[in-house]
């Protein structure tokens, strides 16, 4: 099995750091971005297997990022997990329009995040 690439986008450095470490320790290749625009460029260039993004980010919000990825034929199939500190409920049209499959509320457990990542990638395979 080839190494899966995951793109993590969050403007909170500590969160970005801890999520990356957890995923790397689990054997994934991790790309990081600190705002939405940077994440979009990286995603178009690297075409990761999964995107984990924060909801509230400068330049481009997590939702906008996922919508752009879904709209682009190059990245349309990439599943996404959203991390959010706001009480946001995932609606069916979010998945349709942005490819967001799961919503994880902050504070979150990195352990739980990893199991969600594994599950999403397994289903996507």
């Amino acid at each position: 099995m080839s190494e899966k690439t995951i793109l993590v986008a969050d403007d909170e450095t500590h969160i970005l750091h801890v999520v990356s470490l957890k995923l790397r320790n689990a054997g994934y290749r991790v790309l990081t971005a600190q705002d939405g625009m940077e994440a979009l460029e990286l995603a178009l260039h690297e075409r990761p297997d999964l995107v984990i993004t924060d909801y509230h980010m400068p330049q481009l919000s997590g939702i906008e990022l996922c919508q752009k990825l879904k709209a682009d034929p190059l990245t349309t199939g990439i599943p996404a997990i959203m991390l959010t500190a706001r009480g946001y409920h995932l609606e069916p049209h979010d998945t349709e329009q942005s490819g967001i499959l799961r919503m994880i509320s902050k504070p979150f457990s990195p352990r739980q995040l990893l199991s969600t990542v594994n599950e999403v990638l397994l289903n996507a395979a």
């Binding site: 909170e12 969160i15 801890v18 999520v19 500190a85 902050k106 504070p107 979150f108 457990s109």
Partner: peptide, 10 residues
């Protein structure tokens, strides 16, 4: 939630 998220994760 933001600082709490860091504390819990770390």
């Amino acid at each position: 939630r933001t600082p709490l998220a860091s504390i819990r994760a770390y």
